[in-house]
């Protein structure tokens, strides 16, 4: 897992949660961070813009698109995967 992807995703989530990046830990869920459904779609938008990727995500069925949002770690792994496949 590239540190820069990790740091950038954490920075995006921290900004959304109005926390310092240092206060975001890998096992936290979005709910733990206080990010609601609007915060989630805004975070996904920020991730798409930051990494120039397209995130498969439907708010009606968050599990549908194979983009795991269950924890900070899962999101970082999913973004890493998208960057690897979509940059190819």
């Amino acid at each position: 897992m590239s540190d820069s992807i990790k740091d950038r995703v954490i920075a995006i989530l921290a900004e959304q949660a109005m926390l310092e990046p240092g206060d975001v830990s890998m096992d936290q869920s979005l709910e733990d961070l206080g990010i609601d459904s609007l915060g989630l779609v805004e975070s996904i938008f920020a991730i798409e813009e930051a990494f120039d990727v397209s995130v498969p995500f439907n708010a009606n069925d968050p599990t549908e698109g194979d983009f795991d949002i269950s924890s900070v770690k899962a999101i970082i792994e999913a973004v890493t995967g998208l960057v690897a496949t979509q940059a190819a």
Binding site: V41, F45, F57, N58, A59, N60, D61, E64
Partner: peptide, 20 residues
């Protein structure tokens, strides 16, 4: 599209497999 609430295939109100 940005809100991520739209379906790409059909409108299925009240159906368990609805997706937007």
């Amino acid at each position: 599209e940005g809100l991520r609430v739209m379906s790409k295939d059909a409108c299925r109100p009240f159906s368990a497999n609805r997706n937007g």
